[in-house]
Design a binder for these strands. Structure first.
Lengths: 126, 126, 126, 126
DNA sequence: GTGGTCTAGACCACG
DNA sequence: GTGGTCTAGACCACA
């Protein structure tokens, strides 16, 4: 499921952290679930184990996961702090700007994006 | 119009290059149009002029813009390499994944994203 | 092997990029070979590391080399775009014009140039 | 005869100065010959007149040409100061290095360069 | 005033 | 230790 793109200008650690948070936000990982081990995920993604470890450490610092030494790393919080409405709207606009810019840069137009997003309605739970 | 986010893990120059390509792809800049001057855009975006110059140089290397020394930088090619439909679809899916993940990470749900995107229809030309 | 002339009106980065491409074209560097590190080459050539990095980035953009983050920069394509024979001949003529002009400008005559070039035969592989 | 390449990384002024010196060194311009007017040459080369004027001024500073106001610019010295043998050899080697690098960078090999240069023997006077 | 080149040096991402 | 990004600022080439 989780993938990273070594050719992307976005750093690997940022891609990975975002991907894990997305898995949680989408409900594909729940409280108590174990994350892959650092070494296993590093092998799967063909990246250095240190990079994975740093991401896990960051998530632990944020209270999203907890590490039990010798056992593994587990999801311990799926609550997203409810941002104020004003910030949410601003953030959402920025993210959609980015999406439309990314799409536009490779020639994908606004209607196509909208159509694609609508087509996913059935498959999305939240 | 063009904005960059200094807090994003994606490098400024990558954000800017993407934004300019998007402006062109969306038809908001046409062949022959002059880009903002390096220094002016740097001031507007509150970034270093070298960063802007680097982006312009990259676009010139790709034949998207042409520089006339002492005059300015101009759009000279609006052709987006016609990516195969399969790749387009794949890229679009990845980008929407990213959007939904980012949104979900701050508690914004799929219906909200869709509603926001639909609300922008009137403002988008293509 | 590689040298640049800080007194030349041709920019350092252009001299360096040309020199590296020449090393590859001449077969002195092959696919998979590692380039000198950015910092080492900068020290060797007595130029700024940013200048070397800029050249490597340009070569990467053109698909000539590939960078593995934290590891190094490696040759990944030795194919010179097969310029049409007409262009090659034209370019070659221009370059020889330049050589003879530069030589003539300091009083070196055509026979001397030819003699010098012939004398290098033994040292050149191709 | 004289041409400059606005796409070359070598500055226009350097290309132009070299070209004029080469015309002289090759004997295609002799003492007393008039150079094109600044404005005419600027038009012919599609560059700014200031650039041409600066080159002429530089050549005048070096005693190669002399300007008679209201009349024109004339060749007044075709003597190349005879550089010491050691410097000549060093310079020649550098120039040939550059030629081979330029050629190599577009896939032209040493034998081809030599063949081309030999083929020009008949046509060169000096 | 336009873009281009180079430097020095800080800090980051990755292995 | 590897390359990457960004800044600040100097100086150059060109119109």
């Amino acid at each position: 499921m989780i993938r990273v793109d070594p050719a992307s200008p976005t750093p690997l650690y940022a891609q990975l952290e975002r991907a894990i948070r997305a898995e949680i936000a989408a409900g594909r990982m729940a409280v108590g679930d174990q994350l892959p081990t650092v070494r296993q995920l590093a092998v799967d993604l063909r990246i250095n184990a240190n990079t994975v470890a740093r991401v896990y450490a960051g998530l632990e610092r944020d209270g999203v996961v907890a590490t039990r030494r010798g056992v593994g790393t587990f999801i311990c919080d799926v609550n997203t702090p409810p941002a104020p409405a004003r910030d949410r709207e601003r953030e959402l606009r920025l993210m959609v700007d980015t999406l439309l810019a990314d799409a536009g840069a490779i020639g994908i137009t606004y209607p196509e994006v909208l159509r694609h997003l609508e087509a996913r309605r059935a498959r999305e739970t939240r």
